[in-house]
Write a protein that binds this DNA or RNA. Sequence first.
DNA 1: CGGAATCCAAGATGATACTG
DNA 2: CAGTATCATCTTGGATTCCG
Lengths: 128, 128
Amino acid sequence: MSGKNTGKLAEIMRRGEVLSTECPSREILKHVTSQWGVLVLVALMEGTHRFSELRRKIGRVSEKMLAQTLQQLERDGFIRRVSYPVVPPHVEYSLTPLGDGIGRQVEGLTDWIEINLPKIIEAQQMQA
Amino acid sequence: MSGKNTGKLAEIMRRGEVLSTECPSREILKHVTSQWGVLVLVALMEGTHRFSELRRKIGRVSEKMLAQTLQQLERDGFIRRVSYPVVPPHVEYSLTPLGDGIGRQVEGLTDWIEINLPKIIEAQQMQA
DNA sequence: CGGAATCCAAGATGATACTG
DNA sequence: CAGTATCATCTTGGATTCCG
C-alpha cells in the first residue's frame, strides 16, 4: 500500500476502524443503526419531542423499545433528556450538538433511500 | 394518493417517509443498517471481494450471517454477485452503482463516528 | 405521562457439520 | 472455496401491569 508509519496512520485515520473488531466505534455504530435508533435520530432532527410525541411520530414502537433506545443514545451523548418535576410527568428529548452531527449523517442515509426508492424497487423486480 | 393537495405531496417528498410505518423505505433501511449490512457495504467500497476475503475483513461474522446479508443486499440491487464455474468455487462480490450510492452514505456515517469517537467516549464518561 | 418490571413469542445469530 | 442445513442460544420486541 505505502510507506512506513505515516502512511499507515493516515490510512487508519481515513477509514476502516469499524472493520476492526475491537474498535469501540463498532458499538456506537450498533446503537445508532439499531432498528429504532435511526428513526429516533431522524425524528429529533426536527426538534425537541416528548416521549409520547416520539412514539406517535415513529409509529409501531413499543414503550419499552423507545425508552431503551433513548437511554442508549443518551448514554452515548447524542440525546439530552430534560425532565420537569410536574404532575403529570413531562420529559423532553432533544439532540445534543454531537447528536445533531450524527443525525445529519443518518438523515443523509434515509434521504438517499427515499430519493432512490424507485430505482431500488425497480432493481428488486428485475431479479424476480 | 388523493389528488387535491400539492402541499402535502411536497412535504412528503422533502423527507419523513421513513417515519411512515408503511413506506417500503423502512424495509430497505433495515437491510442496510443491519448489523452486518453496514460493514459489508463499507468493506465493498474498497472494491471487489471474494466471500472469504469479506469474512476476514469484517471479522467475527459467521458464514451464515455473511451469506444472508449478501443475499439480502443483492436482492435490493446494491450488490452484484459474479460466480465463476471453476473448482474450487470462485465468487466475487462488488457494489452496483446503486450500492455505491448508498455505500457513500453509510461511509459518511461510519467516518463521522470514527472521527468523533473521542468526543463520544468523553461524553459517555461525563455521565458515568 | 413517562417509565420500570415482568413474562413471553419471535427473530437474529452462532457453532458445527456437510456438500458441490 | 463458497456456501447450505441443523440445532442451540441469545437478543429483540411486544403486551401487560404497576408506580411516582
